[in-house]
Simulated assay, not measured.
Amino acid sequence: MSSLNPWRALAALVIVAAAAGCAGGSSGQATPEPHGEQTTEATAEPTADDSTETIEPSDSATTEAPEPDWEATARESADNSDGTGPLDPDQTEGRDLTLADFFSKEGQGIDETLYGVASLEEQKGIGAVLAWEDATMELRLANRYTSLAFSAGQANSSKSSDNVLRVEIYKNGKSADFVDIPFNEVYPFNVDVSNVNALKIVLKCRTQNDRECDYDESVTGVLYSMRLGS
C-alpha cells in the first residue's frame, strides 16, 4: 500500500475550503441601506393670522343722529297753541262760532259738546264748569264786525240749582255789561262790537246773595248759537 502524498492532501483541503466560502457568499443577501430618512409631515393647524378678519365700520358707514331743529319745534308749538289770530268775516259768515275760533280760553273744564239747557236737549254749545274760579274766553275781532249774538244758560247737569250764572262782557279790556241767569232760564245776548278788537266773555258762579260759590263744580255755564255780524 502506497503512502499518501502530504502535498496532495493539503491542496485538497484548500480546494474544499474555497468551495465552501463561495457557496456561503452566493446565498447571503446584503440588507440595503436607506438612501434617506423618511419624515412624516404633520397637518398644518390654522393660526390666528389665518382666521377671518373682523371688518371695522368706516366713518362713512356710521349713521349719526341728526341734531334737533329747535326753531322748527318752536314754530310747530306756536301753530298748535290755543291762540287764534283775528277772525275774518269771510271765514265766519253764516256759521256758529266754535271753541277753535277763540283766541284764548282760561278756566276749568271748558269744552265743546252737547248740553241740555232748560227745555233744550242735546244743544251743541261751549260749556265751562264754575265755582270760585271764573272762565274767560276771548275773541279777536280786529274791528271787522258790528254785532255778536248768542244765548246763555246753566246746563241741566249743574250740581247746584240754587246758584246764578253771571255772564260779563268786556270790550277792549273794559267791562261793558253783565247779566245774571238763574237755573232753568236762558238769556239771549246781542252785543254791539263795533270798533271792538278784543272781546272777552267771562262766566262766573254767584249765589243768590251775590257771593262767590262756596264749593267746586257748582254750575256749568253754557254758551250756544254764537254768530258774528259784519
Rank of each mutant, 00 (worst) to 15 (best):
Gly83Thr: 09
Gly83Trp: 02
Gly83His: 10
Gly83Arg: 10
Gly83Met: 10
Gly83Pro: 00
Gly83Gln: 12
Thr84Val: 15
Thr84Cys: 01
Thr84Ile: 09
Gly85His: 07
Gly85Thr: 06
Gly85Arg: 09
Pro86Thr: 00
Pro86Glu: 01
Pro86His: 00
Pro86Gln: 02
Leu87Asp: 03
Leu87Glu: 01
Leu87Asn: 02
Leu87Gln: 04
Leu87Pro: 01
Asp88Lys: 13
Asp88Pro: 02
Pro89Asn: 12
Pro89Lys: 07
Pro89Thr: 08
Asp90Gly: 12
Asp90Lys: 14
Gln91Cys: 01
Gln91Gly: 07
Gln91Lys: 13
Gln91Pro: 00
Gln91Trp: 00
Gln91Met: 07
Gln91Ile: 05
Thr92Asn: 06
Thr92Lys: 06
Thr92Gln: 13
Thr92Asp: 06
Thr92Leu: 11
Glu93His: 08
Glu93Cys: 04
Glu93Ala: 15
Glu93Val: 09
Glu93Thr: 13
Glu93Ser: 15
Gly94Tyr: 10
Gly94Gln: 06
Arg95Gly: 04
Arg95Asp: 03
Arg95Trp: 06
Arg95Thr: 14
Arg95Tyr: 07
Asp96Val: 01
Asp96Arg: 08
Leu97Tyr: 05
Leu97Glu: 11
Leu97Lys: 06
Thr98Asn: 09
Leu99Lys: 10
Leu99Asp: 08
Leu99Val: 12
Leu99Ala: 15
Leu99Cys: 03
Ala100Ile: 03
Ala100Met: 08
Ala100Asn: 14
Ala100Val: 03
Asp101Ser: 06
Asp101Leu: 09
Asp101His: 07
Asp101Phe: 02
Asp101Gln: 07
Asp101Asn: 14
Phe102Trp: 09
Phe102Gln: 02
Phe103Pro: 00
Phe103Asn: 13
Phe103Asp: 10
Phe103Gly: 02
Phe103Trp: 10
Ser104Met: 06
Ser104Val: 04
Ser104Asp: 11
Lys105Gln: 12
Lys105Arg: 15
Lys105Gly: 03
Lys105Leu: 15
Lys105Tyr: 00
Glu106Trp: 09
Glu106Phe: 10
Glu106Leu: 11
Gly107Lys: 05
Gln108Thr: 14
Gln108Ser: 10
Gln108Tyr: 12
Gly109Val: 07
Ile110Arg: 09
Ile110His: 09
Ile110Gln: 05
Asp111Trp: 04
Asp111Ser: 11
Asp111Phe: 09
Asp111Asn: 14
Asp111Cys: 01
Asp111His: 11
Asp111Leu: 14
Asp111Gly: 00
Glu112Lys: 02
Glu112Ser: 11
Glu112Pro: 05
Glu112Trp: 03
Glu112Gln: 15
Glu112Leu: 02
Thr113Cys: 00
Thr113Met: 08
Leu114Gly: 04
Leu114His: 07
Leu114Thr: 12
Tyr115His: 15
Tyr115Gln: 05
Tyr115Arg: 05
Tyr115Glu: 10
Tyr115Asp: 06
Gly116Trp: 02
Gly116Pro: 01
Gly116Val: 03
Gly116Ile: 01
Val117Glu: 03
Val117Asp: 01
Val117Gly: 02
Ala118Arg: 14
